[in-house]
Each structure stands twice: as C-alpha cells, then as structure tokens.
C-alpha cells in the first residue's frame, strides 16, 4: 500500500502497540493515540505476561496454542527483556491427578521428578514430587514490555499522542479493549484479580503454575524478588477492589508453593476487567472507519502479535484491491 496513507491506532495497550509496530514494519505510516497518559494504563498492566501457548492449551481453545506459539519469537525479536526459560507446572501431593489431566490436554512438555524440579528451581527442592516442564515457553514483565514497544516505535519515528481519543484520520484500528463496547455489543468484561508481592527468601527463574481442582493459580517472577500472583477469572463486570476471598486464595497459592511467601511483603492488590468475546477468542473485525482488534481476554501478550499480523494482512489486502480497482 501507499506509504503516504496514514493509519491511526487507537489505544496504547498491548493490542495497540503490537499492531502499530507490525504495521510500521510493513511500511505503513502509523500514529498511535491514547486517551490516558501512559502506555499500558488499562488492563495490560494487570497481565501475567506469560507466553505459554502450551500451558494455556490445557484449558483453552486450540486456536490459542496455534496463534500464540509464534508470538514467543515475535516478543524475543521486539522486546529484549523477554525471558525464555520455560514454565513449570506443579501440584500439591494430594492433587497430583491434576497433573496427568493437564498433560493429557496439551503438548510440548517433559515430566520432571523431584530432582528434575530442584535442578530447574532450587528453591522448590523437596516440595513437589512431579512436575510438567514446558521448555519452549517464555515470560515478560508487561509493565516494562509496553514501554519497550513504545521505545521501538519511537525509534521508527512514531510518537504516541497521549490524552487524545478522537482522530480525523481516514483509517483507524480500534484497539481500545473494553472501552470499545460502544461499537462491539458482544464484548463483555471478565474480572481478574492479582497480587504483587516481594520476597527476599524465594527466587524463581520461570513462571510456576500450581494446579488445584478449584483455584488454579500462577506465580510469575518479575525480578528483584518481586512476584506477580494471578489470577482469578470471574464472570463479573464489577470494577471494585480485590475481594478478601480472592486475595486469600491468591496468597494461599503462593504460600502453598513455598511457605517463605508467608513472610513476603504485599506490594499491590489489583483488579480489572479483561475484554472478551463470547468464544473467549480474539478477533479482528471491520468497523465503520477501519478495523477493530479486541477480545484478547486472558491472552493479551500471547495473542496480540497474531492479531496484529491479521490486522496488517487485512489492511494490505484491502489496499491491494483498491489499487486493482483504480487501475482497472
């Protein structure tokens, strides 16, 4: 397409920034507008940042794995803070049946025994007898990754205009998340809650998932002793703070993983709403002024690169059609 045609990306969350970068790399002139005052100010900042297509497959549609697997390479290429150390899935001795159940529903894992677990995560030595290790998975810190993408955009000469929510541009890609409900009536919010803690005693090199029949949870190391514990998924659009019950469940999971978390300091309790379509899968749709990228649900960082690619391909095709019609 012509490099002079300008595309406006609305929203500087994970969907908007990945889309802007993808388009720019394909030669499209892009600008990003954001109604807030910083990047990733919406629900992106609450994300776990796990790039775990095979772990997610255990409970999600096959499309999440298929679309998500290539995004690990995308993040490694675009954000140097991406860590590819795999992920570990453990279960308390009483619930080891959950591990077999998990394994049955996914792929690309290795079984680890107690010694194998200790070799990967020395601090978990002696705590679990069996685990699933997903060596190809990665993770990142969303609150650093999004500024990282903004920097990559800046290097390409693309500025983000903050405090702006209206555009006169002729083609927009709407990446506003739940705020786009005004044009996406089937979009709903699914509440998620998380806790950030700091421990000076435990260190982990990769996300660890703790299986539990009722409350499966994960702990993602953020570096410097900081850990994010997530996340609930409640069919509610209530915006209030973390409930006591959810906090107890999240903190219990951390404690069950390692009792030293009992001494950890709580840095943050956070709740927000994930934008989701009825099938809990993201989609690129055509809107009145362009495209809409939305519905990333629990898989913002995992699926945003695939959605950005889809949006870019649709854009390229429609411009190619236009050129063809003009020359005909």
């Amino acid at each position: 397409m012509s490099s002079r045609a300008k595309v406006t990306v609305v929203g500087a969350g994970v969907a908007g920034l990945t889309t802007a970068l993808e388009l720019s790399e394909r030669g499209v002139t892009v600008e990003v507008i954001e109604r807030g005052s910083s990047v990733g100010a919406g629900c992106s900042r609450m994300a776990g940042g796990m790039l775990a297509p095979w772990c997610e497959r255990a409970a999600a549609d096959e499309a999440v794995m298929r679309l998500g697997a290539p995004s690990i390479a995308w993040w490694l290429r675009h954000y140097p803070g991406t860590v590819r150390n795999g992920s570990l899935v453990v279960a308390p001795p009483r619930d080891t049946a959950e591990l077999a159940r998990f394994a049955e529903r996914t792929e690309n894992y290795e079984w680890r025994d107690a010694d194998g677990i200790a070799a990967l995560e020395p601090d978990l030595a002696g705590r679990f007898r069996r685990a699933l290790f997903f060596p190809r998975e990665a993770h990142l810190e969303p609150r650093r990754a999004l500024p990282g993408l903004a920097e990559a955009l800046a290097k390409r000469g693309i500025a983000i205009r903050f405090g702006v929510d209206k555009t006169e541009g002729d083609f927009t890609i709407d990446c506003r998340g739940l705020a786009a409900r005004d044009v996406l009536p089937d979009l709903r919010g699914v509440r998620g809650e998380m806790v950030v803690v700091r421990s000076r005693e435990v260190s982990l090199s990769r996300p660890v998932r703790l299986l539990h029949p009722r409350i499966p949870l994960y702990i993602v190391p953020r570096g410097e002793g900081v850990f994010m514990v997530g996340a609930t998924a409640i069919e509610s659009e209530a915006k209030g703070g973390v409930t006591v019950r959810s906090a107890v469940e999240l903190l219990n999971a951390a404690y069950a993983l390692h009792p030293a978390f009992g001494e950890a300091e709580i840095l943050e309790l956070g709740a927000d709403l994930r934008p989701a379509f009825p099938d809990n899968l993201p989609a690129v749709r055509r809107g009145p002024n362009g495209l809409l990228v939305n519905g990333l649900y629990r898989h913002g960082f995992l699926l945003a690169p695939a959605m950005a690619r889809q949006a870019a391909e649709i854009l390229e095709r429609s411009h190619a059609d236009l050129r063809q019609r003009r020359s005909a």
Binding site: L187, R188, G189, R191, I234, E235, S236, E237, A238, K239, G240, P278
Partner: peptide, 16 residues
C-alpha cells in the same frame, strides 16, 4: 455469590 454483585455487574454473562 461470585459472579454478580448487587450492582448486577455480571450483566453480559446473564444476558447470554
């Protein structure tokens, strides 16, 4: 108990 508070916050899910 969990899925909807008094403010009827789970409306989208209920309407489905």
């Amino acid at each position: 108990r969990r899925e909807a508070g008094p403010e009827r916050s789970g409306q989208s899910f209920w309407s489905i």
